[in-house]
Amino acid sequence: MSRTATIPRHDVTGHRRIFHAATSAAAILILGWWSWYSDPDPDFIEVMRNPAAYAGHEIKIGDEPILESVEPGFFVVNSCGFRLRVSGDLSPDDTGHFIYVRGTFQPAPPGTPWNGLVESARYRVARGRHAKIWISVIPTFWVGILLLRHFRFETRRFAIEERCPPDPLHLDC
């Protein structure tokens, strides 16, 4: 057996791990900021805070909006607590489903129960999105259980290790 086979394979100091973790965490934060900063579409919350400034702008309502009600010729969408009247025809059966809307924004006239109007809208009712979200919980737990069965967290080294390494003698070093 070669001498190298007896050397533990783990990074003993961990300094390099800390450095890599810190730099990658910083990189993720910078990417998040850049994503927000470089987005060409107006932020929906910003539009709602200052509706007059965005009159005539095309906006996207995609922050998990719900179709609140359907009336002849228009429907009402609720996103982040803001209610928007969108011109278009939908079936009342679609009420309660997620809906995605893209269209031209206009501030709502005073005295109306809406926070804004959306015209010339393209929209799509995401029927089944609720089911998709809840169904997706099952594989998450399933893979989580598989991972917990195979790996364990070693608190002393602050590291994840295999519960039963495939080669306990490290002959494959």
Partner: peptide, 9 residues
Amino acid sequence: TQLFSDRTL
């Protein structure tokens, strides 16, 4: 993956 101390792993 920085949570894995073993380089191979």
